[in-house]
Amino acid sequence: MAVQASSKLDIAKFAKVHSLMNGGATDGERSAARARAEAMASKAGMTLKQAVSSLDAQPKAQPFNFFEGFDDWMEEKEPGWKAQKAREKAERKSRDDICREEVLARYGSEEALFARTEQEAALDKAIEPLATWEYWTDDDGTRHRFPKTMDGKTPKFGTWYFEDITPAIREAVTNAYPWPSNLDAALKEVKAWERLRRDRALFSGGEWSHYPEVECRFALLEKELNEGRPATSWSDIQARFDWKRYEFEREWIDPTERKDPFLDRLEADFANLRKAYAERQTEKRSVPTTNAQKRAAVLSMLDTHPELSDREIARRIGVSPQTVNTWRRKRNATNSEATTP
């Protein structure tokens, strides 16, 4: 009877009403959807429960899989391919299991992991005047809101990129809490957001997307690191080097080290220059300034390196060759008097 009656039910329309029954934005919307669903079921000679069951009985369309047959093709081309991929999958699962334990140890529970952070709460409050809201319900029945639009805009491809951010959105998300004071701090915030996303993905089937307001802040931080604020210190330049390495390595599921000889050489050159500059600064700070300091430094060098010329000692200490010559003659005269019977 239920099977025959289900043929009278417009499954497509009922499915839409049923989704509103559970996911409507307000209690009134959900109640209205339930009443409509009951009416549709009754018209088809079914109870609401039978109508809902008919949805479950509908065959699920299988999405097209572009990679179907790829593993077989690779196995034929490279024997052992499947076994290698199976090992990598097992290693990844083992690594993810360990990571999940570490995440729970840090947060205490899954509930705490998915609770809005202070930064997320501040961003949510900051964009409130600009947003229209939609809601989703998690597995525990808790409803969460997220902005469907901000400043009248929706992202073109479902993700907020820099070009989607209006001046009003920029002001809201940059002032929600203090903006990083330098590029190193900007990189640290990017890494913190990435770590939160990865932590939550471990408990969400491998995927987790940040709230749109977080995506906007994240896009502005990346813009800052790529081409925004000019570097004003050695640390800022180092942060840009670190950012380019991190940007590459975060793209991979498994840990993958960047292999770019040119950038590696450039980073090493920068490290050498930075070290040399620091050493020169140290030398400058150690240059004697008072006459007493100059005398002590020259006499000490004459005691330890008497073979060096006046000019070389002067260069190392930071005094004039005449000063070194003066104290050398005085030292020699004193030593001569001390040895005269």
Rank of each mutant, 00 (worst) to 15 (best):
Met1Phe: 05
Ser6Met: 12
Asp10Ala: 11
Phe14Lys: 01
His18Ile: 00
Ser19Glu: 14
Met21Ile: 01
Ala25Thr: 03
Ser31Leu: 10
Ala35Arg: 15
Glu38Ser: 07
Thr47Met: 00
Thr47Cys: 00
Leu48Met: 02
Ala51Tyr: 01
Val52Pro: 08
Leu55Arg: 09
Ala57Met: 06
Pro59Lys: 05
Pro59Asp: 03
Phe66Glu: 14
Glu68Cys: 05
Asp71Cys: 04
Met74Asn: 05
Glu76Trp: 14
Lys77Glu: 13
Glu78Leu: 08
Glu78Asp: 13
Pro79Cys: 08
Trp81Pro: 04
Lys85Pro: 07
Glu88Trp: 09
Lys89Ser: 14
Ala90Trp: 07
Asp96Asn: 13
Glu101Met: 08
Glu102Cys: 09
Leu104Arg: 07
Leu104Glu: 10
Ala105Thr: 06
Arg106Ile: 00
Glu110Asn: 04
Glu111Leu: 11
Phe114Trp: 07
Phe114Glu: 05
Thr132Arg: 13
Trp133Met: 09
Glu134Gly: 15
Thr142Ile: 12
Thr142Tyr: 08
Arg145Trp: 09
Pro147Thr: 05
Lys153Met: 12
Lys153Asp: 12
Thr159Cys: 10
Glu163Leu: 06
Asp164Ser: 01
Ile165Gly: 00
Arg170Asn: 06
Glu171Asn: 09
Trp179Cys: 01
Trp179Phe: 05
Pro180Glu: 07
Glu189Val: 06
Glu189Thr: 07
Val190Gln: 13
Arg200Phe: 02
Gly206Val: 03
Trp208Cys: 13
Trp208Glu: 01
Trp208Pro: 04
Pro212Phe: 04
Cys216Met: 08
Phe218Trp: 11
Leu221His: 03
Asn226Glu: 11
Pro230Arg: 14
Pro230Trp: 14
Asp236Leu: 02
Trp243Ala: 01
Glu249Asp: 07
Thr256Asn: 13
Glu257Lys: 15
Arg258Tyr: 09
Pro261Val: 01
Leu263Asp: 03
Arg265Lys: 15
Val287Lys: 15
Pro288Met: 11
Arg295Cys: 03
Arg295Leu: 05
Leu299Pro: 02
Pro306Ala: 01
Glu307Phe: 05
Leu308Trp: 11
Leu308Glu: 06
Pro321Tyr: 08
Gln322Pro: 10
Val324Trp: 11
Asn325Lys: 13
Thr326Ala: 08
Trp327Asp: 02
Ala333His: 03
Asn335Cys: 00
